[in-house]
Each structure stands twice: as structure tokens, then as C-alpha cells.
């Protein structure tokens, strides 16, 4: 994750057609929901992510309850999960107006059962309770979520590991293999391979993983000195000029 909001506002992978929809008045046109939904499934297959485009779908659902498609909503929430610690998941849930039990759907609406589960998972990720996340995510209770949804989301597990890596990179300079393994839900060769792919190294003697230096795990005590900008002095200077 780079350290500006630019790629979140406009991901480089976003096609022009979508950009026009997201930024223009056409985003309110219910006829465009199909385009945006297709784009969501494109994201799901290709490990891309575009929060604002997905919010535009939820906006259309908010205004046009007849468009509502629970599978799309669940997929959007799954994609937003792995953006943690950004608030994407909450932003999506904010747009989910409660709706009356929808009689038009052929099957019972899966959202009411899945939403609390997803919110629980989001909470675990946001609170960096990574081992607990994997335990619950892989528990029998969540079989339906895995089999019906996350299995379709390309690279979901790795996207969650991305969240882990971001958190670990910021807080650690060295971390035991066991601890890192429990965060990533990996062990043995898989773990070694994953660590190698990250470009991190394992100290052979202690089997402790060395996290390469980055701006966030380099700390030093600083004294912040004030710096005075010219505009702060404008009044004082202009006063003496006008009175001279």
C-alpha cells in the first residue's frame, strides 16, 4: 500500500468507462448497475480492487431496492474486508439500508445471516487478531461463506495475508517464525516460501524472521522544532509597511 490516497480514489486498473460512471451523474442511473456488477466480478477474478466503484453499486441498491442482489453485496463486503485497516468495510455497511424481507427473491436472502459473520471477521482483522481470524474463518460454521463466496474470490487468503504483512511490517523488526506463521496461517515449507517471496529473511540459528527496515519500523526520538512560515508574519510585516 502506498502512502497516499490517490490509488484508493482512482485505482490505476479502473477502466475509463467505470471512471466516468463513478465520477459522473450517470452513477445514479439504475441501468448501469449491470456494468458495475460485471466490474465487481472482474475484480473478484483478477485480484483487483476498486472501493469507490463498489460503493456506487451499493448506492444504486440503496435508491432502487428492486435491484438488490445479496450475492453482489456479500462479494463487495468480502473484497472490502481485505482493505483493512482502511475503513472500506464500514463504508460499505453504512450504505446497507435495512430492507423489508424481500418476497421477490426466489431463495431466502443470505445477507442477514452472513452480515454478522462478516462484521465479526472484519472486527478481528481490524483488531489484528489474526490467529483468531483464521480459526473462525476456517471453522465449520463458516462453511457456507467459504463454499458459496470466498472460494470464488481469487487470492482471498493471500489478500488477508496482505493485511497481516502490512501490520507486521509496521510493528516488528524481527518476529519469531512461529508467531508469523500463526498470523499467516502458514507453516513449514509454505511459510518459508511465503517469507522468501516477501523478500524477508530467516536467521538460520534462531529461526527468527528479519523484517526489512521501512519507514514505519525505523524509530528514533525526535524533537520537533517550530518552523515559521511567511504568511504567519504577513500581518506584522504589512503593518509596518503601511505605516512607514
Amino acid at each position: 500500500m502506498d502512502n497516499t490516497a490517490a490509488s484508493w480514489i482512482t485505482p490505476p486498473s479502473r477502466p475509463e468507462l467505470i471512471e466516468n460512471l463513478v465520477s459522473g451523474v450517470d452513477r445514479y442511473n439504475p441501468n448501469n448497475v449491470g456494468i458495475l456488477e460485471d466490474y465487481l466480478y472482474h475484480q473478484i477474478r483478477n485480484e483487483e480492487y476498486d472501493c469507490l466503484a463498489n460503493l456506487a453499486i451499493l448506492k444504486l441498491y440503496q435508491f432502487n431496492p428492486e435491484l438488490y442482489n445479496p450475492d453482489v453485496v456479500i462479494n463487495i463486503l468480502i473484497k472490502a474486508l481485505t482493505a483493512s485497516p482502511l475503513p472500506d468495510f464500514n463504508l460499505c455497511v453504512s450504505l446497507l439500508d435495512e430492507r423489508p424481507v424481500n418476497a421477490q427473491l426466489d431463495e431466502p436472502d443470505p445477507l442477514p445471516t452472513h452480515l454478522p459473520i462478516l462484521r465479526g471477521l472484519n472486527d478481528l482483522l481490524f483488531r489484528c487478531r489474526f490467529p483468531a481470524f483464521w480459526d473462525i474463518y476456517r471453522s465449520d460454521d463458516l462453511e457456507s461463506l467459504r463454499d458459496n463466496y470466498t472460494v470464488e474470490v481469487a487470492g482471498f487468503d493471500n489478500a488477508v495475508r496482505g493485511v497481516v504483512v502490512r501490520a507486521v511490517k509496521a510493528a516488528f523488526t524481527r518476529i519469531s517464525t512461529a508467531r508469523l506463521g500463526s498470523y499467516l496461517a502458514l507453516s513449514g515449507d509454505d511459510l518459508a516460501e511465503y517469507i522468501a517471496k516477501l523478500g524477508w529473511t530467516i536467521e538460520p540459528a534462531t529461526s527468527v524472521v528479519r523484517v526489512p527496515p521501512n519507514p514505519e519500523n525505523q524509530i528514533e526520538a525526535t524533537v520537533v522544532q517550530e518552523s515559521i512560515k511567511l504568511p504567519q508574519l504577513a500581518k506584522v510585516i504589512s503593518h509596518s509597511v503601511s505605516k512607514a
Binding site: 524509530i219 526520538a221 525526535t222 515559521i228
Partner: peptide, 21 residues
């Protein structure tokens, strides 16, 4: 600010110099 070096936590603090301006 802090980092964790395996099981050791190292802590630093930034202080703000006195402001006069």
C-alpha cells in the same frame, strides 16, 4: 513510537520543542 524486536519492545518519544513564534 515503538517497534517490537522479537520479544523486546523499544520505545521512543518525539517531543515538541518549545514554541515561541
Amino acid at each position: 513510537n515503538f517497534i517490537i524486536d522479537e520479544n523486546m519492545v523499544h520505545i521512543t518519544e518525539s517531543t515538541v520543542g518549545r514554541r515561541y513564534a
